[in-house]
Structure formats: C-alpha cells, structure tokens
Write a protein that binds this DNA or RNA. Sequence first.
DNA 1: AACTTGCGTTTCGTGCTATGGAATTTGTAT
DNA 2: ATACAAATTCCATAGCACGAAACGCAAGTT
Lengths: 263, 263
Amino acid sequence: MTRQSRNPYIVQPVMKALKVLELVARHGHEIALTAVGKELRIPKTTTFRYLQTLSEAGFLTHNQETDKYNIGPLMRSIARADASVSKIRQLARPAMIELMNEFNETVNLAVKGDGTIVYIDLVEANRSLRMQARIGDSHPMHSTALGKAILAFLPEAEKQRQLDRPLTERTGRTLLEREEIERQLRMVAKQGYATESGENEDGAMCIGAPIMDENRYPVAALSISAPLMRMPRPLAAKAGARLREVAQAISGHLGSDAGIPPA
Amino acid sequence: MTRQSRNPYIVQPVMKALKVLELVARHGHEIALTAVGKELRIPKTTTFRYLQTLSEAGFLTHNQETDKYNIGPLMRSIARADASVSKIRQLARPAMIELMNEFNETVNLAVKGDGTIVYIDLVEANRSLRMQARIGDSHPMHSTALGKAILAFLPEAEKQRQLDRPLTERTGRTLLEREEIERQLRMVAKQGYATESGENEDGAMCIGAPIMDENRYPVAALSISAPLMRMPRPLAAKAGARLREVAQAISGHLGSDAGIPPA
DNA sequence: AACTTGCGTTTCGTGCTATGGAATTTGTAT
DNA sequence: ATACAAATTCCATAGCACGAAACGCAAGTT
C-alpha cells in the first residue's frame, strides 16, 4: 500500500479521518456513509468509525432521520471565532501603529475570552524599559484596563456572572471588592475608557477602550500600557480620549464591509 | 486509561488529534508543541505527530520561523465555502418556492464547483413526470443552463480556462464546438439568462440565471427545469425573465447583512 | 406476500502501527 | 561558553485499528 509521501510522522488514522472530514464538509450537504467510503476508497467499516468519531467530537453532525452526515457546529464556531479575530486584528493594526508613534508606548489588542482577555496583537514601543505581554497570553478581566473596558460594556447578566467568580489577586493593588469594582465600571461606562495602575503588574499602568461588534457587544479592547512613572494623569487622560476615539472608529468598521473576495 | 465513554466505534488517535485541532484553532494564535501537549496531557511525541499530520492535511499551518502552529488554510476555506452556501440557500429558498408555485415545475439551486455546478437545493414540482437532479449531484457547466448562466458572467480568463478542458458529450445535442458555445454565452450575457434543450438530459430542458456576490462574481445559479414538451418558447422566455429578476434580488441581498449574532 | 437489493451496524481475530520513554539535536537565554 | 528548554529522532512493545464477513433492517421488485 503506497500511502503517505515522505513525512514519517504522519498518523494514518488521523490523516484518513481528516480526508473524510474534508470531503463531508466540502460536499456542502448531507452525505451518506457509503458515498464517502466509495469516494475515498476506504472500507465502509473504517469509514463508519471515522464518521462516528468526527461526529462525537462535534466536527460533523449525524442526522438520525436520514442517516447522513454534515458539517458540525464546532467547525462553524471555530471558523466564526477565527474570522472575527482576523478581521479585528486587520482593522486595528494601522490604528495601533499610529497610536504607538503618537505616545511612544506599547499598544495592545485583546479579545474577550471566558473570564479573561487574550492578547491577539501588540505593537511595541521602541524603548528599553517596557512592559510587555505576549500574543496569546491571557490575563484576568478585573485586573486589566483591557478587561475592565470590556466588563463595563457587557450585558448586565454576563457582567455579574464574570464578577461572581473568585477574583485572583495579581498585585497588592488589585481590586477585589465587588462594590469598588462595580463603582469603577460605572465610571468606565461613563467616560468610555478604563484605567489600571499597578493592579495587574507592579509598576505598570494601562489605559483601555472597548471595541464593539455590530450589536454593540464588546468583543475586544485596545490599550496603551506604560511604566507608571512615564504616564502622569494628564497624559493618561489624553491617551484615554484617543483610545476611545480610535476604538470607536474600528467598531464602526466591524459591522460593515465584506472580507477578502474569493480566489 | 479510562478514555472514551460508551461509543465503541471511537478511534482514539482520531479523537485525540481532533482535540489538538480544536485547541490550536480555538487558541486563535500561534501555539507551540509543548504548550499543546501540556494542556491536553498528551505526551509530546504523540502531540508532535498529530500536529505534523494536521499540518500536512492543511488543517493547521506550521510556522517554520517560530516553530509554532496555527489554523490552516483548509479550515478557513471550508468554513468560508460553507457559510457562503448556507447563506445563499437560506436567501434563495423562499423565492424558489414562489417560482415553483408560479410555473409548477422543479426549481434548482446550484453553486459553482471546479468546472462543474453542484446542486445545493431544489424544490420539486408536484407532478408525476418530472426531471430531477439530487442535492449534491454535479453536472458539467457547458451542458446545463445553470452552468451556462455562470460561465457567461465569469471573468474572461476563467471562462477560457473552463472551456479549454475536454467537454463531455452528455447527449446528442450537447454543444461541443468552442465557437458555438462562445456565441451562446454572449447572448446569455446580453439577455441575463441561459437556456438548454436536451443538451444535458434527453427530453428535458432548463432555464437558468446567475446569482452574483458583492463583487459581481457568479457564485451560484437558479434554474427551472421541465420536460421539453411542457415548456414552449414563449413560456421559457417568461420563465427566463422571472428567473433573472429573482436571481438579481438574491444577489442584492448577498453582499449586505450580517449573519447570526454571536451567542 | 416472498424475494432481492442496498445500506448501516456489529462481531471478531490478526497484524500492523501508534505509542511514549529515552536519546539526540537544535535553538535560545544567561 | 554553558545551561536550559524545546523540537526531533529512535526503538521496542502491545494495544487497538482494521476490514472481511455476518447480521438486521428497510425499500423496492416480481
């Protein structure tokens, strides 16, 4: 059986199951077990097992009525999340570079995870002393300006749910009192941006504003972070105003235009 | 190792590799081998092989620079195709039912495949004698009204590429002469709909109009099919006009509105 | 109604290959 | 230059993926 090319690390069951997944997904409609097996020249017993596994994992669905298979919810949800992140990053990048040049501090972009914010892009300041997260890092919502900016604009129910969880204490200054946090969030909602001073990382501060999707749901946030000493109050206020402005512009573009045209 | 629950047809390597795929895709950003293994409690050797396989299959990409993995092009392309098909079908369905009632003949919806058209939906006429394709079937472009409607509005380069391939002869009336086909396509482009008489199936005819995306690229087509005897010229012309109208309305909706809002 | 056909599901024994510990290489930080 | 971490390669083992064949079920045929 002349199967895989050169790479000796290919796991055949996985590779073949992926072919099945691709075929079903590409087919665009319900397709039956036998049809899949015939097309890919895989014995029906094996095809059966792959389809079962793919369905169990949520990548496919198995229609009990017709005994046929189709794309599953997981596939769609992953794709949707990915597309959204790509779009936000793409829209935000030019503005982030602009902001970095304006303030000469690191600019961060993060999306809302579950109870956390996840950095998806950052433009680093050209300075020796700088605070920096890494793309992919996740931090608690309540201890970061990015998170507070998102929290403040979340629907009430979800906001409460987030605050119900145990709140980790990142530094001595991290806010842990429910009352205190809610008070701050009301102010954030009013002024349109959030600030944080040494609550997430000692000696660092951060200013953040939310990015909303077409339903005014805060899906992401933009921030400027700097050492405390380099960011006096007036400058922070100026940064906040600019962030709010830029984040709103990005939000405006999020609902509208289509992506890349097909090949 | 107590792994999978009840279903005895689960193939472990496949299931575990899918968990890896999901983790990487969900992470939203490049992630390293070790991190994946640690998260899922899979030994790194095995994780390595899964990542290799997933990458080879195109579901992930392996960034040589950073030695990290991310969502691959295949995943995106499948998702994009699926979303597009779902949207078209959803938009077209009401209009198709309307058309079926109007003419009491089968109405078909197909998307452009590579060199073929693929049926993605159909509303069957309530008659005993009816021609019918099945969802998922694919037919050549040059022998169907659906295909000709799409061909006529394809960018010149792609149209030529399609006609360069060997053209299969479906019936005695199938057009095979390049000259003849091109002449017809020019007429289709002018009148906005295509017709086909016994060129794909003996005794059947079909009238089709293209559905365009926001870039005026013909991604799909709508058609009415009937036995030749039930579709005299004047009726065919009337059907063509209606199809053009309806297809244009659908095209108009394709570019605009957003999908389902996030949960 | 008996028969056939086609498909999904189940069973089961065999041998292949997926596996993961350990060794090695590569790359990076100190 | 050295240490550390991370990726890749090696290898021996047994666990389980595989597919032929049998089974059950439903739809269509005579």
